[in-house]
Design a protein around this nucleic acid. Structure first.
Lengths: 357, 357
DNA sequence: CTTCGTTGCTAAATCGGGTTAGCGCCCGTT
DNA sequence: AACGGGCGCTAACCCGATTTAGCAACGAAG
């Protein structure tokens, strides 16, 4: 049915030369190896006419490479949050002529083993181990066969691999600064974790770092967190419950929600209590989930730079791959990607305060 | 640095036999070809001890296969809606020991060409061409080299390739039936498209088919669509605007929104007009986007079965791949995947009506 | 004592490309 | 005419696994 693939032999035959000669011409080493103009032209013409494309599998067999990167995640590939991460990785890879294998472990160590094996069997040139949420992971043994970059994850124990992470501490500072800049100094409450550094789920790096950033920025301005409510899970329903619980005892002037889904629940709770955003209560959040722009008023939030994270991971992986094998393992650097503020309409100066200026 | 891969030659050497002998034993053809028990045991032992794994690239070179499927989409890979589609495809592929190459064309024909070429160069055994939204697409020429399945897309012109699609007509019927079953017969309005079949964006298969289903089911019950508002884009803001526009002239008893984002806007508009869901107005929708469960009250919606679509596409692709090449092109079947209703709390009997029973 | 048949394994070729060493030819020189 | 030296190309081998054809050794039959 489908016509057989055009091989180098076909081109050589059409040009009336031997296979190696055609190979030399096509790999641009013809000049250097004194192939005549005439032969060069014949080969190029034949290759063009036959639409010759080298078989990467064959090259891969010889060189042990595949121009392919493996992207293994717990659930990030299918997380609605982080498709952009794949997109960034995809585009960065494409820029260098690489393709991406996608795999998901669903947190299952055995599945992860099989997947890494399957990728290894296919001679991937590098691996990205990604996590849906920024967290610490156990680095699987025996993956040192090819360069590895961690994405949105930090290794448990000593840092043996380079990692790419969102700059969560800075994000926390930015969120706090949004409120400070609007004039807020009192009645700032946290929804999700806190108020102390101990009230944080231990495996969530993001939660801890955001909190650190918030406390730093507020502290520098001489402002204290007025209080906090933790959420069992960072979903709207728990954000709703936590905020309701808060509103039963106090009247906050501003909320820092630890993600946008929590913020969505917080909006619902504020509505239940007849409080307006941002007139009565300002709200800032994290992630820039699509709903942040759909909520009314639009939610000001510090964005997770998924696209950039994906790109950066691939970029770092390429530098690892290019690195001289002798000095491998030297740099298990942590790369932080900035988290930008998306200003919308959920923050205003505290009610009863003059606008500063 | 990293220890060289264990090859068949290593195993053969360790077992004290030739390469082909080891190969025969490991491929299970030892019995048939009268390899002695002794040799068989030695080879198996050596393979086990050395942790031998055949190099798929090498096998691929010989057989022209790669145990790999290419998943090419316009933007589905990174669409937050459809990660589950990839997940379904991934798992179905994994069940047969296949991996997935992911690629995105972003609707760019040239990019698509390059991507298909890159996949072809890597000897993919089959291709899935996916679309983010159900729509008609131009099938790129020259992809007949390997089996192809269309996912969430139908070819422009004659059906030359098998396609997997959500059963949108049935979904339309189901949405209508939800309202009919609740006792609604009057004041049913559409938000998104309609009321006539001409008021539908031409490239959107989903819009048209949903509308057809709705009109069928209502028609069979002797019920007419009371009216409709189209949306420029199926986003919350346009759903909000369209619903507001509607509410300025009439008081609907029920809304069928053409997707959940429109429904979110509709909720906002209803709230603006002091109308309660579902007491005053029932709302049904399509897609089962995550926000459907986050909205208050929970939105009853007919789900896009992304996971099943992905699985089904791979399943169909495998049957294509297994098919005798002689009869290829025979079946350009369209496979419809059912869309299940997710009942939540946005539908109630019409106000002032008795509950039937 | 030859011949045939069986058993148990391996040599050689294959896939498609890349690399290296070296062959033959032509030219100029002595 | 013999020799040296560049030029232009190709033979041969490599990667790793598989397949086919066939070799060697042995036993049994004639």
């Amino acid at each position: 049915m489908s016509p057989r693939r055009v091989t180098l032999a076909d081109v050589a035959k059409a040009a009336g030369v031997s296979r190696p000669t055609a190979s030399l011409v096509l790999s641009g080493r013809g000049r250097e190896l004194r192939i005549s103009q005439d032969v060069e032209q014949r080969v190029l013409k034949a290759a063009d006419e036959l639409q010759y494309r080298p078989n990467i599998v064959s090259v891969g067999l010889r060189t042990g490479t595949s121009r392919t990167i493996g992207f293994v995640s717990d659930t990030v590939a299918t997380s609605r949050l982080a498709g952009d991460m794949i997109k960034g990785a995809l585009e960065a890879a494409r820029d260098r002529g690489f393709m991406l294998f996608i795999g998901e472990t669903e947190g299952d160590a055995e599945l992860e083993r099989l997947l890494l094996q399957a990728m290894h069997d296919r001679q991937v040139d590098g691996l990205i181990l990604a996590s849906m949420f920024t967290r610490t992971i156990k680095v699987p043994k025996g993956i040192t066969a090819s360069p590895v970059v961690l994405l949105n994850a930090v290794p448990k124990g000593p840092a043996v691999l380079p990692a790419v992470l969102p700059h969560e501490v800075e994000a926390g500072r930015l969120a706090a600064r949004v409120l400070l800049d609007a004039g807020h100094r009192d009645g700032i409450y946290l929804i999700g974790v806190g108020p102390g550094l101990r009230n944080v789920p231990s495996e969530s790096v993001a939660a801890l770092e955001r909190l650190v950033g918030i406390r730093e920025a507020l502290g520098e301005a001489g402002v204290k967190v007025a209080g906090a409510r933790t959420c069992f899970d960072w979903q709207p329903e728990y954000g709703l419950a936590a905020t309701r619980d808060l509103l039963e005892t106090v009247r906050p002037r501003a909320l820092i929600c630890f993600n946008d889904r929590i913020a969505m629940g917080a909006y619902q709770a504020l509505d239940d209590f007849g409080l307006k955003v941002p007139a009565d209560v300002s709200v800032v959040s994290f992630d820039d989930h699509p709903i942040a722009s759909w909520m009314r008023p639009g939610l000001t939030t510090v964005a997770l730079p998924h696209y950039e994270l994906g790109r950066k991971a691939v970029d770092v992986l390429f530098t690892e791959m290019d690195r001289d094998p002798a000095e491998l393992g030297a740099a298990a650097e942590v790369h932080r990607v900035p988290m930008p503020v998306r200003s919308r309409d959920s923050v205003a100066p505290p009610s009863g305060a003059h606008s500063p200026g």
